Simulated assay, not measured.
Amino acid sequence: MNWILLIIAGCFEVAFATCLGKAKEASGTESMYWYAGFLVCLAISMYLLVKVTQELPIGTAYAVWTGIGAVGTVLVGIFVFKEPATFWRLFFIVTLISSIVGLKYVSQ
């Protein structure tokens, strides 16, 4: 169950980063809604991270959380914000995913 919560926490990390990107593109009241979304997603992500670190090792949980956030944010950048999807970006995303999976398998 903790691993599922950790994945959800990582997804909320992607969401709060996405909200920041959308807030930068928006103006006026719309940007304030994106900033509010950022705060909500940040609070949920942090709460879940704190909860899972009560059972999982902090180093593993934090590495997986940031890895999910990094991979997810890069993918959102490619698909939503039209950032380049070069060979090397995709190569390192795959190596990052492999590392996250590896951490899961070697953790108790």
Rank of each mutant, 00 (worst) to 15 (best):
L42I: 12
I78C: 09
A43M: 14
T18R: 02
L20N: 02
T53I: 13
V14F: 03
T73W: 03
L75R: 08
I93K: 01
I44Q: 04
Y33C: 10
L103E: 10
A70G: 01
R89E: 03
V74C: 07
K24R: 15
F79E: 01
T86E: 13
A23F: 02
K24V: 12
C19P: 01
G28S: 05
Y35P: 00
G77A: 12
A61W: 02
Y35C: 09
Y35E: 01
E83A: 13
F92H: 11
W65M: 09
N2T: 09
L39Y: 09
L48W: 06
F87G: 00
G10V: 02
L42V: 06
G10E: 04
A36G: 15
Y105S: 04
A36N: 14
T66L: 14
V76D: 03
Y105N: 10
L75T: 03
T60L: 09
T73I: 08
W65F: 13
V74N: 02
C11T: 10
I7G: 00
V106K: 15
G21E: 03
A63V: 04
V50S: 10
L75Y: 00
A9M: 01
C11M: 01
A26N: 06
I93H: 01
Y62C: 04
T29M: 06
A17P: 10
I78F: 10
F81T: 14
S27K: 02
T29E: 12
R89D: 00
F16W: 05
G77H: 02
G37I: 08
K22M: 11
C11K: 06
I68F: 00
L39V: 13
V40P: 05
M46F: 11
K82I: 09
K82A: 14
M46H: 10
V64A: 03
L75M: 14
L103R: 08
V94F: 08
F87K: 08
Y35W: 14
S98R: 09
G69C: 04
G102S: 15
C11N: 09
V74T: 10
A63T: 10
I68E: 00
G69I: 02
F12C: 00
W3T: 00
C11D: 07
K24T: 13
A17Q: 02
K104F: 11
E13M: 06
M46W: 05
L20E: 10
E55V: 15
T18N: 07
F16T: 07
F92G: 05
T29F: 03
R89H: 10
E13H: 09
A23N: 04
